[in-house]
């Protein structure tokens, strides 16, 4: 009966299911990997297995994270292709998601059931999530530094210090703009983790994996546990990044580069990525 004249109508089912699928693969899977890596800023110090025994836990995390990022950027094959696939998936998921979300109308005021609130937040988190992901990728990946307070440019050789500087708004201390950016990160990652966990729950109904109320309840617990874990990872990653002093982190990164690749490599990297304008003397840093 349905009128199937247009492209959207003819491929309605395919588009709907692709929308659902892309949310899980690649986006959701990437999200898990991404948050796991980033949260190593917080827990990596405990996983160094004796290496860098001179570092405290926070510094250890930074070292671990540094190695992870270095590994990804130098060892993962076709990285750009993977990235482009991811970006296209996100764009596809976002555009259709916004289109679909606009067909509904929230009514949690009248029907304040928990499921209904999650329906509403799934859509809000989608909208905010799109903005956040765009900002996040544009600033830290595409180096649209004009959007970054303080203008820090993220670089994988100095992944910890540039990240911290971008979040804090400067290399020195947390600025007001930096605070706003950090807050935006907090909101963005929180909503996205929710969006993923809740989306995973609804996807199981959409695809028909969970039919009975009991199954939906059980799968709900699994999704809640996953969401809680990812939320912990996301918050700890953000917390650790914001608490990181970019200047100290830079020093650590330089030390690690030298250890791994020698002085020459560091000089080349420094030339390309000069880092923060020194506010204290080079010697002071060296002393530390």
């Amino acid at each position: 009966m349905a009128n199937d004249s247009g492209f959207m109508e003819r491929n309605y089912f395919l588009l709907r299911r692709l929308h659902s699928l892309t949310g899980i693969l690649p986006i959701g899977v990437f999200l898990i990997a991404h948050l796991t890596t980033n949260s190593s800023l917080a827990w990596g110090g405990l996983a160094l297995r004796g290496k860098h025994s001179e570092l405290n836990t926070l510094e250890g995390g930074q070292a671990y994270f540094y190695h992870e990022v270095e590994w990804i950027n130098s060892n993962v094959p076709h990285l750009l292709l993977i990235e482009i696939t991811l970006w296209l998936s996100i764009a596809f998921h976002s555009v259709l998601g916004v289109y679909y979300a606009r067909t509904g109308k929230n009514n949690t005021q009248r029907y304040a059931y928990q499921d209904n609130k999650r329906y509403k937040w799934q859509r809000i988190s989608g909208y905010v999530g799109v903005l956040f992901i765009f900002y996040h990728v544009a600033t830290l990946r595409w180096q649209w530094t004009f959007l970054v307070p303080g203008g820090a440019e993220w670089n994988h050789h100095f992944s910890v210090s540039t990240l911290a500087a971008a979040l804090r708004g400067s290399y020195d201390s947390i600025t007001f703009a930096g605070f706003v950016v950090s807050l935006f990160y907090f909101v963005g990652i929180t909503l996205l983790v929710f969006h993923f966990a809740n989306g995973l729950w609804t996807a199981a109904i959409t695809w028909g994996l969970t039919v009975s109320e009991q199954a939906q309840k059980r799968w709900g617990m699994v999704c809640t546990a996953l969401g809680a874990g990812l939320m912990l990872a996301a918050w700890s990653a953000l917390g650790a990044a914001v608490m990181t002093d970019p200047v100290e982190a830079r020093a650590l990164e330089e030390k690690l580069i030298v250890e791994a690749h020698g002085e020459q490599h560091l000089l080349e990297a420094k030339e390309k990525y000069p880092g923060p304008a020194p506010t204290v003397g080079e010697e002071d840093i060296a002393d530390k």
């Binding site: 029907y111 059931y113 499921d115 209904n116 999650r118 959409t206």
Partner: peptide, 9 residues
Amino acid sequence: VADCGNAQN
């Protein structure tokens, strides 16, 4: 059925 947003009201 794919339009269902699973609000479950």
